[in-house]
């Protein structure tokens, strides 16, 4: 908490359990622990990369931060104010400052709405400007994201995936937000287009002073855009560090395996890949102790019983692993990450 700049957004003990409903009476039989008590803090202007396998809870985390999903437990603070309990009406002014960019460039644009209407909608909902000033703003935004003003009259099906993603970015920027959650914004795009969109996001960050939570399963992309990287596994954070530290010296065996799985252009180095055996366990019934113990190459007895906590080793480098921080080590005072 004694960080020099207070975080723009902070979440403490963020948890989301989805009930699994069965039978005709909607009894809640069990819960899927999509996100299980994670802490996040992003200072203004930073890009935090959030990586993990499909189903590890990274998308749920992102959507909770912008309040598209209500957390089961935990606190969310935006500019120091708690927002997790706000209702739709009191949340609306806050929404102006946080936006989200989606993965699927096809599903994220309403096929029945013109680009003009799509980009102007946030302005309309938040009652910013009149119809004419909105038209002008849309035209400006289109230029900002590298499209042409005349594109405003067109419909989504007339655009390519990369162009659609630019429209989605323009929509998110329309209200001049401070925080943008990028939920796998380039995963659905061709590699060459990915680079363009990533560079666009980086430029926009500079021009608009944006703070990003960048969710991706692509460690290469995350490395390119992030300042810090957070690795999630099965609803838990296993490692957080500054980008350089994480890529140079990954502490958690899961992070090590993920990094070794990044495709390398050099065939001689490929053999060093560490393959994680097995599949990701079900978040409805997560393993006891360390959640990674079923697949960890270094599993110890203690891993099956005691859950490791996120602890700081090197400065600003946090990991949740008994190998890195043996259980006997006294726990440092808990601090937010």
């Amino acid at each position: 908490m004694s960080a020099p700049t207070p975080p723009l957004i902070e979440a403490v003990g963020l948890t989301k359990h989805f009930p699994v409903r069965t039978g005709i009476f909607n009894r809640s039989a069990s819960v899927v622990r999509a996100v299980d008590g994670i802490d996040i803090a992003i200072p203004p202007g930073e890009t935090l990369g959030l990586v993990g396998e499909s189903g590890c809870g990274k998308t749920t985390t992102g959507r909770m931060l912008v309040k598209l999903i209500d957390p089961t437990a935990g606190r969310i603070l935006f500019e120091g104010k708690r927002i997790e309990g706000l209702d739709a009406a009191t949340m609306r002014p806050v929404r102006r400052h946080m936006q989200i960019i989606f993965q699927d460039p096809y599903g994220s644009l309403n096929p029945r709405m013109s680009v003009q209407d799509t980009i102007a909608e946030p302005l309309e909902i938040l009652k910013i400007g009149d119809a004419r000033s909105r038209r002008e703003q849309v035209r400006e935004l289109l230029e900002v994201v590298g499209l042409a003003p005349y594109h405003a009259e067109r419909f989504p099906h007339e655009f390519s995936g990369g162009q659609r993603q630019r429209i989605g970015i323009a929509r998110a920027l329309a209200v001049r937000p401070k925080l943008v959650v990028c939920d796998e914004p380039v995963s659905a795009l061709d590699v060459s287009i990915q680079a363009q969109v990533i560079n666009l996001l980086k430029d926009l960050q500079k021009d608009f002073g944006l703070t990003y939570l960048f969710i991706s399963h692509d460690l290469g992309v995350v490395r390119h855009i992030s300042d810090r990287v957070m690795v999630m596994y099965l609803g838990k954070v296993v490692e957080v560090a500054r980008k350089r530290d994480l890529y140079a010296d990954p502490q958690h065996p899961y992070t090590q395996a993920l990094l070794s799985a990044i495709p390398l252009p050099d065939p001689k180095r490929r053999s060093r890949r560490k393959v994680i055996p097995g599949d990701i366990p079900s978040p409805a019934n997560p393993p006891s102790g360390c959640r990674f113990h079923t697949r960890c190459p270094h599993v110890m007895h203690v891993c099956r019983e005691v859950e490791p906590h996120l602890m700081q080793g090197a400065p600003h480098h946090w990991a949740a692993c008994h190998l890195v921080h043996p259980p006997s080590t006294p726990r440092p005072a808990p601090a937010s990450v």
Partner: peptide, 26 residues
């Protein structure tokens, strides 16, 4: 469940607006 509905919700759109503008036309 489409993402454009989520996008509208992220801007604070109400249910009525979402039904009228995003759900019914589709």
């Amino acid at each position: 469940e489409m993402e454009y509905v989520q996008a509208a919700r992220a801007c604070g759109a109400g249910d009525w607006r979402i039904i009228r503008r995003h759900v019914m036309p589709n």
